[in-house]
Simulated scan of single mutants.
Amino acid sequence: MNTGDEAKNAFMGLRGGIFHAQTLGKGGLVQKEHSGYTGLHWIECFIVKNGVCVARSSEFFVNIQ
């Protein structure tokens, strides 16, 4: 999730959603992303099985200045 004025004012800057991880890494599924915006960012992990959320992580916050 992107927050902050830069993301709010950018086309498609604010976002969030659930999507499949793109790669399978040494420790399991890996999803890498980059941000072009300052502000508070966070990520959560959801495990969905047969269309049902069976597990959810807590939020991990990063403040980019």
Rank of each mutant, 00 (worst) to 15 (best):
N2P: 04
T3E: 07
T3P: 02
T3Y: 06
D5H: 01
E6M: 08
A7F: 01
A7E: 00
A7S: 04
K8M: 06
K8G: 02
K8D: 09
N9I: 06
N9A: 14
N9F: 09
A10P: 02
A10V: 05
A10D: 07
F11P: 14
F11C: 14
F11L: 15
F11E: 14
M12I: 07
G13T: 02
G13W: 02
R15C: 13
R15Y: 14
G16Q: 02
G16C: 03
G17T: 01
I18Y: 03
I18W: 02
I18M: 03
F19K: 12
F19Q: 09
F19V: 05
F19D: 10
H20C: 15
A21Y: 04
A21C: 15
A21F: 07
Q22A: 14
Q22E: 15
T23A: 10
T23I: 11
L24D: 04
L24P: 01
G25A: 00
K26G: 01
K26C: 01
G27F: 04
G27C: 02
G28D: 01
G28N: 00
L29Y: 11
L29C: 13
V30K: 08
V30I: 06
V30A: 04
V30F: 02
Q31I: 03
Q31H: 13
K32G: 11
K32F: 08
K32W: 09
E33T: 11
H34N: 15
S35Y: 00
S35K: 00
G36R: 05
G36P: 07
Y37D: 02
T38N: 14
G39N: 08
G39D: 07
G39Y: 07
G39K: 10
L40E: 15
L40G: 07
L40I: 14
L40T: 13
H41C: 00
W42S: 04
W42Y: 08
W42Q: 06
I43G: 10
I43D: 12
I43C: 12
E44Q: 12
C45Q: 15
C45S: 15
F46E: 10
F46D: 11
F46L: 09
F46C: 10
F46V: 13
F46H: 15
K49E: 15
K49N: 11
N50L: 03
G51R: 03
G51V: 05
V52S: 06
V52H: 05
V52D: 06
V52K: 14
V52P: 04
V52L: 09
C53F: 02
V54N: 08
V54A: 11
V54G: 08
A55I: 10
A55V: 07
A55H: 12
R56Y: 01
R56H: 07
R56V: 03
S57V: 03
S57P: 01
S57E: 03
S57Q: 01
S58I: 10
S58H: 06
S58D: 13
E59M: 05
E59N: 03
F60Y: 12
F60R: 09
F60T: 04
F61W: 13
F61Y: 14
F61C: 13
V62E: 10
V62H: 10
V62M: 07
N63G: 09
N63R: 14
I64F: 08
I64L: 13
